[in-house]
Design a protein around this nucleic acid. Structure first.
Length: 111
DNA sequence: ATTCTGACGTGGG
DNA sequence: CCCCACGCCAGAA
């Protein structure tokens, strides 16, 4: 792994860690914040790697539709959903309701 | 070294 | 509104 990539991953974790309780964000938003808006996939990949890190709440990161696309990667089948619901997020059929209300934009709130 | 796939996003038909 | 294709980067077979 190159240093630059490491930095990229590190940044992803850094942002992910800052996601407030009961809030969610999208891969694209994070990627954009990192300056790699066209590499949203890499953010997801980073999340996959983040599985080793307990500090990274990957369950708070969903796609722009508010769909829990990555729930399949979690331990159970609906662990991700349960974690979010536990934070007060309403999810129906793997989809977050009132996404705008829960959405956390790194630019707006983190900057 | 080559090919495919993947927790995405955007754009065009 | 639905479906398809492309771009992007990295890792695994």
């Amino acid at each position: 792994m190159k240093e630059e990539n490491k930095n990229f991953f590190e940044k992803v974790y850094e942002v992910a860690k800052k996601i407030p309780f009961g809030r969610v964000t999208s891969y694209g938003a994070i990627a954009k914040h990192l300056g790699a808006a066209r590499s949203a996939r890499m953010v997801g990949w980073a999340m996959n790697a983040s599985h080793n890190m307990d500090d990274v709440p990957a369950h708070r990161v969903v796609n722009k539709q508010g769909l829990l696309t990555g729930k399949h990667h979690f331990d159970g089948t609906n662990l991700m959903q349960q974690l979010l619901e536990n934070e007060g997020v309403v999810i129906i059929e793997n989809q977050i309701q009132n996404l705008e209300k829960y959405f956390w934009d790194p630019f707006t709130e983190l900057e």
